Amino acid sequence: MSGFVRLMRLLLVLSAAQPILPAHSQTFPNQPLKIIVPYSAGGATDLVIRAFADTVRESLGQPIIVENRPGGGTITGMNACAKAPADGYTLCVTNSDSLSFAPLLFSRLPYDPAKDLIGITKVASAPSGLFINGTLPLNSFAEVIAYAKANPGKLNFGSFGAGSVGHLYAEWFRRELQADMTHVPYRGSAQVATALISNEVQIAWLALSNALEFVAAGAIKPIAIDYGTRAPQLSNIPTLAELNANPKSIQSYFGLYAPAATPTPVIERLNSAFTSALRDKKVQEKMATAYFTTNPTTVDEINRFRRDEAEIARRMASTIGLKPVDAPE
């Protein structure tokens, strides 16, 4: 057998062993991408996405359209993302806690976060905290909890939707600290901040990016920080961990997701474009002005984090006896 024939046979064997990528994957992207935000406009998630959208657009060569789809405590927007065509053109960004705890808080969710969505990358994290209305004659976490115990149901606890981090804290404080507060869900963090300033609610969980200007104006007061360390901007305010009042042992973050059946080459292309943007110094500087730290990861890393978080969430729900209720409309 001639050397040429042997070479041709070897090449045929090798080519047969290579995966044949769908034509769609080879040409992706060839149209604009849409990122669904399951909160109303003006919140922390909007700040995160708009900080890197232009850089990603330059990398992918296609516009990035941001679509706010609030409602149902992120369920409306995340369901739209999960049920979208799995072609890489519809993505979504949400707080990781919403995916971890929604299945435990609500029965009959219209989508399964574990089965219907795949993580592309972590995006960013930022200090958040518990804030109270500035006119309340209370000045610390201990004073707020003591007041809530002595006056069941008199404090309204605002959150950016059922199933959100704020909802989780309200339940945990009620069950574990016997601090009975009335949970009041809103459609986004901007609405929560407005409600807190107007005293429609007296306590709320907010990202620092939504809260600091109102703290400076005296309209609201910080009582605890939800982060691994104290926030430099509020260095005199203790963390929930310092107060032995942290219901979670994990740090929440914003992540980028796609429908689970999206082809792997497309997911990897998106991961490359978005993580490259998140490592860009100009993007990091933009994020820092809103008190966010970028957290780019591999696809495997974010999905491993998701599995770990789901297990922690299950244990926590069991500890406080959390029972699911009907999902909000």
Results as ranks from 00 to 15, higher is better:
residue 12 L to C: 02
residue 19 P to R: 13
residue 25 S to L: 13
residue 26 Q to M: 10
residue 27 T to E: 13
residue 32 P to Q: 15
residue 40 S to F: 07
residue 40 S to A: 15
residue 46 D to Q: 14
residue 49 I to D: 10
residue 50 R to Q: 12
residue 53 A to N: 11
residue 53 A to C: 12
residue 53 A to W: 03
residue 61 G to T: 08
residue 67 E to A: 14
residue 68 N to C: 10
residue 69 R to T: 05
residue 70 P to S: 13
residue 79 N to K: 11
residue 94 T to H: 08
residue 98 S to P: 00
residue 99 L to A: 12
residue 108 R to V: 02
residue 113 P to K: 06
residue 115 K to R: 14
residue 116 D to S: 13
residue 122 K to V: 00
residue 123 V to K: 12
residue 127 P to A: 13
residue 129 G to D: 04
residue 130 L to A: 08
residue 132 I to W: 02
residue 141 F to H: 09
residue 144 V to A: 09
residue 150 A to I: 03
residue 152 P to N: 10
residue 155 L to C: 04
residue 162 A to W: 11
residue 166 G to V: 01
residue 172 W to F: 02
residue 172 W to M: 03
residue 175 R to F: 00
residue 186 Y to R: 06
residue 190 A to K: 12
residue 198 S to D: 11
residue 199 N to R: 15
residue 213 E to M: 06
residue 220 I to R: 10
residue 232 P to M: 09
residue 232 P to E: 12
residue 239 T to I: 09
residue 242 E to M: 07
residue 252 S to C: 05
residue 262 T to I: 13
residue 263 P to D: 10
residue 263 P to V: 12
residue 264 T to I: 10
residue 269 R to K: 12
residue 270 L to R: 15
residue 272 S to Y: 00
residue 279 R to Y: 09
residue 285 E to F: 03
residue 292 F to V: 08
residue 297 T to L: 00
residue 297 T to I: 11
residue 299 V to T: 08
residue 302 I to K: 00
residue 303 N to D: 05
residue 311 E to Q: 06
residue 315 R to W: 03
residue 327 A to L: 09
